[in-house]
Write a protein that binds this DNA or RNA. Structure first.
Lengths: 236, 236
DNA sequence: AAGTGGTCTAGACCACGAA
DNA sequence: TCGTGGTCTAGACCACTTC
């Protein structure tokens, strides 16, 4: 008798080895459950996880087919900057540069879902590792959603850390870019001539209500984002 | 009677609304199955998916707790450049710039797992959308793993497309960077002064054998990578 | 020792959608 | 129409880990 993990591994092997090629139809759950001497539920779980991983596509009546990949799925984990710095055993320093309540630009207003003349909290801060600037955090926070933000000075705690405590599990959207550094970014991040920045734009919201919109700006020469999840994911 | 999706949604709601806060212990599967009037299996599936999504952590005997997030998980889908261009209804053009078999530099040799004096196939190609260069593809291919590559001219088919047909589901690792453009990149990608490049480094292998190592170089002003998967994933 | 989650069984009903 | 996957049940045994 085989476990769903073993079955998943066997099926995965048959796919990566191209015994089953893209477009091919896999045997039905019924057939496989007989082959492996287990119940259909067990086979179902194995195949469902392969489908979640993007290796196969399943449709009722049509069966399960090997996917012809048209893109490379990948998962990344964007660490909170303080964590990332401390994990590297560097000393972390946080510096608040600017804090004010003001009318956000139109695009930010739309992203946060604010009224026409509604103010938001603007924060600009710098994060250092071993005294070297690693991240510039330029952020708008929706005060209607988080009135406590008005009372917080953000002198000692970074807005990212603060928000993670208040709103631990928001919805998130990210955009990554390689940008030319502005003059201000060049100065604040101590960039060399022509050194680009790696920008993470993040929008968070919860049940339709915008929470924050932020640009995380990193020195191109000191930042990389890595992935270790594959089209053929390393299951546990 | 409630389905596992309804239960998952209810639990998710209790977490995002902070009725259950980070660190809090959730009721046991047993208790929840009574609350929702279903079997433990159903609750198990709901909670397992919340764990997969990173909202909770589960340990035998210790129970299930809400996670205090220390990073933002995200999933991206890196499209094959031809697909991406065609999806935007632009005309796709592919141009092979260089093709030769040679000894790769030490770091690439290590990544591909080659012997000391083993040659590999080097390819340099450009991908255009509507006549504008969108991606420079600089690549090493392991000929031991893919001897057919020696016979392929790559004059008419891009190496990415070719590889996806041969080795549809390899293991993959990615690194993303914002880099200063080299003089050659600036010329080939028609970059402006100081315009950075968004670089995707990809390593693929299958059952321990290296397949390809590639740098995909994009004009910073014409490229963005987006994510729509959240810490609180939008389940189906 | 005992409570928790992890997995499996042997069935069942049903929704979907290809033929 | 009817084969496929999607889900659920009522039970069971076990692994793990805290107490």
């Amino acid at each position: 008798m085989r476990s769903y993990k073993e079955i998943r591994g066997i099926l995965q092997e048959r796919i990566t080895s191209q015994q089953w090629q893209p477009g091919d139809l896999l045997p039905s759950e019924q057939a496989l459950s007989e082959e492996f001497g287990c119940t259909r539920s067990t086979v179902n779980r194995a195949m469902r996880e392969l489908a979640d991983a993007g290796l196969v596509e399943r449709r009722r009546k049509a069966g399960t087919r090997v996917v012809q990949p048209k893109s490379h799925p990948a998962t990344i984990s964007i660490p909170v900057i303080r964590q990332e710095i401390e994990n590297k055993d560097q000393s972390y320093k946080y510096l608040l540069l600017e804090r004010l309540e003001a009318l956000p630009p139109e695009d930010v207003r739309a992203q946060l879902g604010l009224e026409q003349n509604e103010k938001a909290l603007f924060l600009k801060s710098l994060h250092y590792g071993d005294g070297i600037p690693q991240q510039l955090d330029v952020r708008w926070i929706n005060i209607s959603a988080l009135p406590e933000a008005s009372q917080e000075s953000f002198a000692d705690i970074g807005p990212n850390d603060w928000l993670l405590q208040r709103v631990p599990h928001p919805n998130i959207e990210h955009v990554f870019r390689a940008d030319k550094a502005t003059a201000e970014e060049q100065r604040l991040l101590q960039l060399q001539e022509c050194e680009p920045v790696f920008t993470i734009e993040r929008r968070t919201w919860i049940s339709g209500q915008g929470i924050t919109y932020v640009r995380l700006v990193h020195p191109g020469s000191r930042y990389r984002m890595a992935t270790r999840s594959s089209a053929t994911p390393t299951f546990n």
